[in-house]
């Protein structure tokens, strides 16, 4: 005898068909909704500058910095922001263990993480001894005072940049290349230009790897709006 549909137990396969249809409808509804939420919460990228700004290095009083303001093998940390606000860079006048200026030639710097390499800019100034590089450790982003320049103390202990967060060490004498890990990326070098008639320095661009924590060097921050970038010593 054929039972009415309301009295029969629903067939398992037909029921499963409906269950799949239900899951499908609710599934596409959820995917469709969540997709828009995800697309909405991705922040628009903020390109602060279209190209690298050229910024004169100045003292806190606004006067340009001169070679005599820089101390050879200064154990204090001298930094300035570039290319955007709040992105510190080391400004170093390098010397040997007797505190005599050392000319820093451009050198080929290898990037262990990618296997690639690039040319570091080399020193500028009357003795070719002034160099600059990002002071944001490429390992996990520590900044001064955690990352610091240690001047050479004898002819057998050359000067190094060492980050006390996790122990990464860089060599400022050869393009801020990696000496010891855990970092596998050298510090991005800053290209300085030196005006020998005025004895002033300007930051012109960054070379090497992208700054730590950025998708590009010119996004993810606010542009420096003052005329020059202020050099501060701590």
């Amino acid at each position: 005898m054929r039972l009415k549909s309301t009295e029969r137990a629903p067939d398992e396969q037909k029921r499963n068909f409906l269950k799949i249809m239900g899951t499908l409808i609710i599934g596409v509804g959820m995917v469709g909704t969540l997709r828009s939420v995800v697309q909405y919460i991705i922040p628009p990228s903020t390109q602060a500058e279209t190209s690298f700004p050229v910024l004169t290095l100045v003292l806190a009083n606004g006067n340009p910095i001169h070679t005599s303001d820089l101390i050879v093998n200064n154990s204090a940390t001298v930094t300035f922001d570039y290319p955007l606000q709040g992105e510190p860079n080391f400004l170093l006048r390098l010397g040997d263990s007797g505190n005599t200026d050392v000319k820093i030639p451009p050198s080929k710097v290898s990037i262990p993480s990618t296997g690639g390499s690039y040319q570091s800019p080399g020193g500028v100034g009357p003795y070719g001894s002034v160099v600059a590089a990002s002071a944001i450790c490429e390992h996990l982003g520590c900044v001064p005072p955690e990352i610091k320049f240690f001047p050479p103390s004898s002819s057998t202990t050359p000067g190094k940049i060492h980050c006390s967060c996790h122990g990464s060490t860089y060599d400022p004498y050869s393009g801020f290349s990696v000496v010891t890990g855990p970092t596998r990326i050298p510090l991005p070098s800053l290209v300085l230009s030196y005006d020998s008639t005025q004895d002033t320095y300007a930051a012109t661009m960054m070379v090497g790897p992208t700054l730590y924590g950025h998708t590009s060097d010119l996004s993810g921050g606010n542009a420096i709006t003052t005329k020059g970038t202020v050099v501060s010593t701590t």
């Binding site: 029969r8 067939d11 037909k14 068909f17 409906l18 249809m21 499908l24 409808i25 596409v28 509804g29």
Partner: peptide, 16 residues
């Protein structure tokens, strides 16, 4: 019963 299945299928199709 068939009506339920047909409508369920139509709803699923429309959703896609």
């Amino acid at each position: 019963e068939r009506g339920h299945l047909v409508f369920g299928g139509i709803y699923g199709f429309l959703a896609i």
